[in-house]
Design a protein around this nucleic acid. Sequence first.
DNA 1: GTATGTACCTGCGGGC
DNA 2: TGCCCGCAGGTACATA
Length: 273
Amino acid sequence: MPELPEVETVRRDVDALFTGRTIVDAAVGGPRTLRRHADPAAAVARLRGRRLESAGRRGKFLLLRLDSGEVAVVHLGMSGQLRVGEAGSPRQAHTHLVLTWDRGPELRFVDPRTFGQVWLTSAAVPELAHLGFEPLDEPIGWRGLEQRLAGRRTRIKPLLMDQRFVAGIGNIYSDEILWSAGVAHDREAGSLGGPEVQAVYRSMRSVLSAAVRLRGSSLADEQYRDLAGRIGGYQLRHRVYGRDGLPCRRCGTPILRAKAYGRSTWYCPVCQH
DNA sequence: GTATGTACCTGCGGGC
DNA sequence: TGCCCGCAGGTACATA
């Protein structure tokens, strides 16, 4: 499932390939991808003739800034992909939006489960005002994290996945971060001591940075691919996610899987406290 | 403030 | 082989 590292990988690819180019046509498939707009066809019409000034990211949201001052916001949801394809080449099933540029390949939004969405909004992107801090681009320091955790009685894992608290972390990376930090998923967030907060903060940055370097995680049963259709590399570095029954890479104890917070959670019962 | 459940959706795997 | 069912999970929202 696309989280911060996967969206950042897509952002870099889009920026390298399309920034400075002009959209000459935009075609929308079904209504769900642009469901924020009452009239999806009218919304995509606003893309035509617009030049891409930059591709940015906020949490798991991709921000395509246009020379009109508007921003096309893309969220990949569970199964969304941005893919390139030469004009006239076969399109994948579930291709919901196609952008044609003044030169180069088409940019296609493909999304079987249709949890993803695309919408057009003003430069300030008010819809994203609720998002928490950026774990890589906004170095709040472990003291900053400690302040934000103080008094919180919720469990640490769902808090790391709460986009209002910190932007970009989902089920895969929350498990990986907590294993790396040696902290149990069900610890009360405000109960973490200083060294534990430091460990969570460092792990958050190191795990996400490494995953960005390796262009994200692609699992056998999920859809994530980069623009060219290539898989990521970080799944080879997973320490707990999807590894139930396999030995912990730190202590050898079999990794456990639990159903918690409405999600599958993987953890080491011995070296996470 | 916190916890839990539901809706949205399709592909896949397990069970029969 | 074919059918049915449950599961996977990001976000938003409802309810307790």
